[in-house]
Amino acid sequence: MKTAGVIIVFLFGGLLVYGTLDFPDWGDPDAPASRHVSPRYIEKSLEETSVPNMVTAVLADFRGFDTLFETVVIFSAGLSCFFLLRTKRKAPEARFYRHLPTGIVLRIEKGGRLPEGSVEFERIDSIWVPHDLIIRATCRLLIPFIQLFALYVIAHGHHSPGGGFQGGVIFGAAFILYAVTHDLRDGLHRLGEKITIVLCSLGVFIYAGVGALCLFLESNFLDYAALAPVLGVDPVTARSHGILFVEIGVGIAVMAVMFAIYTNLSSVGKQDEGL
């Protein structure tokens, strides 16, 4: 059976390699992919959309439908993670509290909890939790810069590598870093579960909404030039602005989905405690 598997793998691998021989050479200007639309994108993207970064123009304008459904894929990834993993939060068997002045950890059995507003105790995870003052302080210092950089990547996607997906991932990573260095409850306190779900659908809604707005303004779906009268600019600049709106939507969706997947995976769906 094992040898049969090896033979099949090599047979199909060989067929695939044989198939690649028919491909055009790397960077061949006569390749079918670069004969029809590519020259047009290269020559016209700047004058039609006033976006210097050709990749962004192709991604969010010429192939806007593709990117819209990519965003939907990410949205459904977050949603399926939620539906697969999220379980009902049961009261844990025991909670652990650390007395901050002395460092003694108390284990409180089922049902018991500290009175509200007790400041000398801090609830900790049931796995071993070190005193990580250095890591927390460093992350408090870094997270604002990471978030600022994420916004820069989103907003500067017109001119440099970047855009909604990358910026959204960086923004989500800032939240994940916060949840890792503090704990999951603190992270969820900053960006709650309901808010992440609202945000990831809001991101897709912004993208599709910009497209639908073009439809209402008597043009094609996702034809940003139709937004010109609303924005008060010429159609070329309107396409540039339309790309920005869409990128913002993508950024919001990706950020929220990143954090939702992290919280569900790290806490095995209980959203209670974890990494």
Partner: peptide, 20 residues
């Protein structure tokens, strides 16, 4: 500047994990 802040912190965190 950022590497000078983060690199020692990362090393510290990895040592913590080793102790753990």
């Amino acid at each position: 500047v950022f590497v000078f802040i983060t690199s020692p912190t990362a090393t510290h965190a990895i040592v913590d994990a080793g102790v753990r």
